[in-house]
Design a protein around this nucleic acid. Structure first.
Lengths: 341, 341
DNA sequence: GTTAGCACTCAATTTAGGCGAGTGCTAATA
DNA sequence: TATTAGCACTCGCCTAAATTGAGTGCTAAC
């Protein structure tokens, strides 16, 4: 059976109505809701077809229909095609330039959560291909060194490393010069084994320290990649009864607190990137198992220089996809204008 | 009316039983539960007295009794007196020395949450009276300086400050020496206006930069004090039906995510410190309004040098106070042994 | 002072009936 | 042939009434 224009319109009507009310929608409602001028009986016939095709389901006999996962999927896909709507500017004052990227992202997550009434997450950009702006060693005491690494976008990472042999202030100065002259301005991918051994050689008897520093750099980057995820509005899920009850709410809240699993979402989103930068996961499609009864809309932002990160909005399947997509586009636009010089 | 030995025993039985079951407990249950060998009728008489005295309440006529807030209070207080139980060692491997304090605290919060099945929070120590180990300025580019502040316990804070006039590498070096020679080893309280103006004077034309740096220090400290709170196990509340439903769960989860309000708890706990270091807030006594139907047990840990912080465990009123107190004491003991040299 | 016995209370659970939204099918209509 | 009106039927939901049972307070006996 093929999907006629009319069936498509009816499907859209079912989805839209269900998004608003959260209740199953019946044929009579549709017959008035659309401009098709068809009686409820006709609609019923069409709906029976749509059900057979798997786009809508009945929670029980003699109830209205609700969209199935593939119904949502079809709706979202066609909607995204039709929509080249203008990007709506978000309030500038909330997104004014922050010196610290992490603060900015935290704030953005919060803004999105308040705006949309869904739960949000933002991953800090992976800094893989990003340029090192500054590496700085400082002597804390005779056996401890502080390493500070600053990369493009003022992302700052620091760690304390313990050293076995005592070290003088002068040596630290020398090492700083050595490291900075060779590493500043380099992308992190470029710091390869050859470079490292060359550095170690130049450091002479302090080669072990260079090794430790490089390890610390690697670790700092690793930590960044793994887990730097900001979340907000987890408690928004309580606004949607279908997500608010016991077990499910507990799992969602747990996932948001733990953050570990959200990383899966970031990874998947970055690798499957499509042309618009916006992706939708519906129900079982979700990479995060705790959210198999949710929909997730993700966007990839790109601050240039390979700094890419993921924004995710998590809500019920009947989320307001239009609004969410608008918001995401707005935020992406803002981020661009802030960081692209 | 006075509180006889027997009444006390009955009250304890009511509380203990209610802690386990979460259901109102009746006279017949008590009559078997205790070793008093009294009939249910006698228990009923005593319970009537206890109710009159305000220690227990009936949710409705012809239901069993549950402890009132002051019933819990009495129970907790007497329990704390009787208990000089040996501090139980927590698994060492989980609490092995971490170089970074924040990592350690995060891990501890998680450990406590898993152990107790309640929600937990830990505030990073206020560094008010803490000694500065290192202050470090680095030139990121011609108009940006990176400030790194390291205090006792390897708590690291950094911020980027923008400067108007260009600055050379040499000047930065001079400023570093100036700041470090005067500020290292000082407690943060000691950095007062007199010292600041003296520093500014010595900095000559770069006095404005010193001002900015000091501001950054102040801001970093402020941020630390305000908001550095680690939480874990918020979703544990779903294990207790009386907290799991809609509105209340939403508020609790929201508070845990926002963290702002938890600060109130930290402040109150630190200022009301008692001899054991452990405090219990029951119901309305809670400084955090979202948790007025919970109980909160807090402990103050002290890493020496004025580094004090708060650990809080949040659960239903019928929480297992014994277990919680044990766990808290264990953690405090561990923290002590790790940081007291 | 303690206990057995009994009438009473009241939340919680079960049961039954009515309502109404919505369906599928059939026959009539354009 | 596509559309529509009409009708019997289904079934979740709501309400009210009936039932159950845990627990109480009181009284009288021990």
């Amino acid at each position: 059976m093929e999907l006629s224009e009319r069936k498509m319109k009816i499907l859209q009507a079912v989805v839209r109505n269900y998004l608003e009310t959260g209740e199953p929608v019946g044929s009579r409602t549709i017959s008035k809701y659309t401009d098709l001028n068809l009686s409820s009986a006709t609609i019923r016939n069409e709906m029976a077809d749509l059900e057979e095709m798997g786009y809508i389901v009945q929670p029980h006999t003699s109830a209205g229909r609700i969209p199935s996962d593939s119904g949502y999927r079809l709706y979202v896909d066609t909607m995204m095609e039709e929509k080249t709507k203008e990007v709506e500017e978000l309030k500038e004052d909330l997104l004014k330039k922050e010196e610290r990227l992490d603060q900015l992202l935290k704030q953005t997550a919060k803004l999105l959560a308040t705006n949309t009434n869904y739960a949000t997450m933002i991953s800090a950009p992976s800094i893989h291909k990003n340029k090192l702006k500054l590496i700085q060693l400082s002597r804390v005491n005779t056996t401890q060194l502080l390493t500070v690494i600053v990369v493009e976008g003022n992302v700052i990472k620091n760690s304390i490393i313990n050293i076995t042999d005592e070290i003088t202030e002068e040596t630290v100065l020398k090492l700083n010069i050595l490291l900075n002259t060779h590493l500043n301005g380099m992308s992190i991918d470029e710091i390869n084994l050859g470079l490292i051994s060359s550095l170690k050689q130049q450091a002479g008897i302090h080669s072990d320290i260079v090794g430790e520093v490089i390890d610390a750099v690697a670790e700092a980057i690793h930590e960044e990649e793994d887990l730097e995820i900001y979340t907000s509005g987890a408690n928004n899920i309580f606004k949607y009864p279908e997500l608010a009850d016991g077990k499910m709410a507990s799992e969602i809240v747990g996932t948001f607190e733990e953050k570990q699993e959200l990383n899966e979402l970031v990874v998947r989103t970055l690798e499957q990137e499509n042309n618009t930068g916006i992706q939708v996961y519906i129900g079982d499609e979700s990479p995060v198992k705790a959210m198999k009864d949710c929909s997730i809309v993700t966007a990839t932002y790109d601050l240039g220089e390979g700094m890419k990160g993921t924004i995710g909005i998590i809500g019920p399947k009947r989320m307001d996809y239009d609004k969410v997509v608008d918001n995401l586009k707005g935020v992406m636009h803002q981020l661009d204008s802030i960081y692209k010089k």
